[in-house]
Design a protein around this nucleic acid. Structure first.
Lengths: 146, 146
DNA sequence: ACAGATGTAACAATAAAGATTACAATATTT
DNA sequence: AAATATTGTAATCTTTATTGTTACATCTGT
């Protein structure tokens, strides 16, 4: 199973905020049209980003802005904000290994640490990329159209 | 969303083969009882491991054995065998960004490379651990009961 | 008060994982 | 050759999570 598209959608949201923020008000409808999903999905994701302190959403009047420079917002920040993993664990462990079996009783102990290391390697890599990196690439495509 | 329990189940399978292989015939029923899932689930996973060349399954008579020493079977081998990700991609991208929007048109280009690097970091870490590591830890628990 | 937004609940639709039943095919034993 | 135990696999069901949609209360500037 894959990691939910909430993650790529959230990054898309930030990209729109940066590219269009000066010329347009960034509403959930505006975002929904670029991302091509339902505005309510966007609003849920905006809520999560707001709860994580990454953005501010103007209630009533509408519009969204980042709370800090986008070169200080990493993929990891977004990943945490949109709450992709249940219990924060990447791997789904089979729930009820047999406690009367020597292997079943100890499989968790023998695996958990290593699974966390694997998850940790992924999360460390996520910290290396920022929203600014993505926006820079998009802007390159805009200024040098093929 | 989490990665399917097929992965931890498959590792559990190998651990049972190693720990019990000399004293018992490792059938899908035997495994199902230690892992505590349905035998048909086990048989599907065994099929995948067999297709990947990691094990041999004795048809008719029953029983399962690894095709090579377990210190040469990494988590990554198992991960590939049980086919956890659709299209091999860890991240689910929102399907239809608006091609008429400058951001929507280019978001894929700007993101794909970085997502692959993140996935790659996870997969590289998976190559560091073998079934033997897990079995050693389990055996420690057995010989030195608390 | 109005108009345009957001916040959120409720529920439907879709998709994937996992569970279960059933049975044909295979191999060993007697 | 028949009996037995097991694998291989199809079909179906249940459960769970995601995503989509409708509806509406709430908020804010005009």
């Amino acid at each position: 199973m894959q990691i939910s598209s909430r993650f790529t959608i959230a990054i898309h949201v930030f990209a729109c905020m940066e590219v269009f923020g000066e010329d347009y008000k960034i509403t959930s409808d505006f975002l929904a049209s670029s991302i091509n999903v339902n505005p309510v999905i966007i609003r849920k994701i905006l809520s999560q980003l707001r709860n994580a302190g990454l953005i501010e959403v103007a209630r009533g009047t509408g519009g969204t802005t980042a709370t800090r420079p986008i070169d200080e917002i990493t993929f990891y920040d977004v990943y945490l904000a949109v709450d992709l993993l249940e219990e924060g664990e990447l791997f789904h462990f089979h729930e009820n290994p047999n406690p009367n079996c020597p292997v079943g009783k100890n499989i968790h102990t023998a695996l958990d640490d290593r699974l966390l290391h694997i998850q940790g390697a992924m999360e460390q890599e996520m910290k290396k990329y920022t929203i600014a990196d993505v926006v820079n690439d998009i802007k390159k495509c805009l200024t040098v159209p093929k």
